Amino acid sequence: MVNILNRVPEVTIYFWIIKIMATTVGETAADFLSITLNLGLSITSYIMSCLLLIALINQFRLKRYAPLSYWLVVVLISIVGTLITDRLVDDFGVSLVTTTIIFSCLLLAVFAFWYFSEKTLAMHSINTAKRELFYWIAILLTFALGTSTGDLLAEASGLGYAQSALVFGAAIAIITSGYFYLRMNAVLAFWLAYILTRPFGASIGDLLSQPTKNGGFGYGTVGTSMLFLCIIISLVIYLSLKRKKSGLVP
């Protein structure tokens, strides 16, 4: 049964499809704004952080799940999470190994604090402002961590975008199998998959958008971003209409 007081969506196939698409948009949109439009990482970070703050204020105002508001926050937080890592690496010279360790430790600390405070990390229990705040902080860190691990594997190690996508895709498949067939803890499986879908989606985004000389398909950041944004918007509209038809309108 759907919990109408929950502030986040049910974890369905639509959830994972949109999440991966949002991840890809986060990677390509950040590159489009900072590189293609030549805004630079600093200005792009300030603009997107302000937009994210506005979207979060609206999200907390609603007090329950609304597809448009929720997924707008996810897309923006994906972009901001990407920019945080990119700024640390490109502007401040922090290595990808260091950022991976830092964000891993921060994420574990948030999970620990969240659990000791609320006694649960489950998705279906995000029904208070305090739990939702923990949730969004964790989500931001998963995107920053995913950016670090994705870039570390695909670029710094020289593995390449396609091979990285296969590695992260295989890891997600293993976790999925563990959940369905080996009774892996649902909360653990969710958060591991959530973290891994970030570098998986980012690797796909880079593979599609990067020039062929860099190992990509050369579709560009504009084309890739618009394609995935259209898919996200279509699915969000569908889910909104489905929710309205079911009488679950916030």
Rank of each mutant, 00 (worst) to 15 (best):
A66M: 08
V25I: 13
F200N: 07
W191D: 05
T12H: 00
F116R: 15
S95I: 06
V236I: 14
S125Y: 01
V25A: 01
F111Y: 08
G215V: 04
C230Q: 09
L208R: 08
A112S: 15
L51C: 13
G218V: 06
F111C: 06
T142I: 10
S225F: 05
F200D: 03
R7K: 14
D90M: 12
L106Q: 08
R198K: 03
G205C: 01
D31F: 01
L37T: 09
R131S: 09
K19N: 12
N38G: 11
S164R: 07
L229Y: 03
L182A: 12
I195L: 14
A122G: 11
L235F: 02
L227V: 12
S246I: 11
D91C: 10
S49M: 10
I231N: 00
E118Q: 13
N127T: 15
F200M: 09
G247V: 01
W16I: 00
F168S: 09
A154Y: 07
A186V: 10
I35E: 14
S69N: 11
V167G: 10
N214W: 00
A129K: 11
Y14W: 13
D31Y: 04
L140T: 14
A173E: 04
N185K: 06
T85L: 09
L145Q: 02
I18H: 00
E132L: 10
I54C: 11
Y65M: 05
I139T: 15
K19M: 01
E155W: 01
I43D: 09
Y135R: 11
E118V: 13
F180A: 04
V75K: 14
A170L: 14
T44Q: 00
S42R: 14
V97R: 05
T197K: 00
N127A: 12
G160Y: 04
A138N: 06
T36N: 13
L141I: 12
L121F: 01
E27H: 04
L192N: 06
E10G: 12
I101Q: 08
T128E: 07
G201H: 03
I232N: 08
S203A: 15
N185E: 14
F32C: 09
V73P: 07
V80D: 09
S234F: 14
M123Y: 00
L56C: 10
D90R: 15
Y238S: 04
L248A: 11
V236G: 05
A202Q: 15
S45P: 05
L72Q: 04
G216D: 15
G216T: 07
L229Q: 02
F228P: 07
V222N: 01
S34N: 05
Q210N: 13
R61C: 02
D91F: 01
A165V: 09
T128N: 06
L248K: 12
T44K: 08
L208C: 11
Y135S: 05
G223S: 10
K244Q: 13
A162H: 01
S117A: 15
L83E: 05
G169F: 03
T99L: 01
F134C: 15
V110A: 14
I54E: 08
L229R: 03
K130P: 03
G146T: 07
I174R: 03
T24H: 03
V167C: 13
I47T: 12
L152C: 08
L39F: 14
T24V: 15
V167S: 09
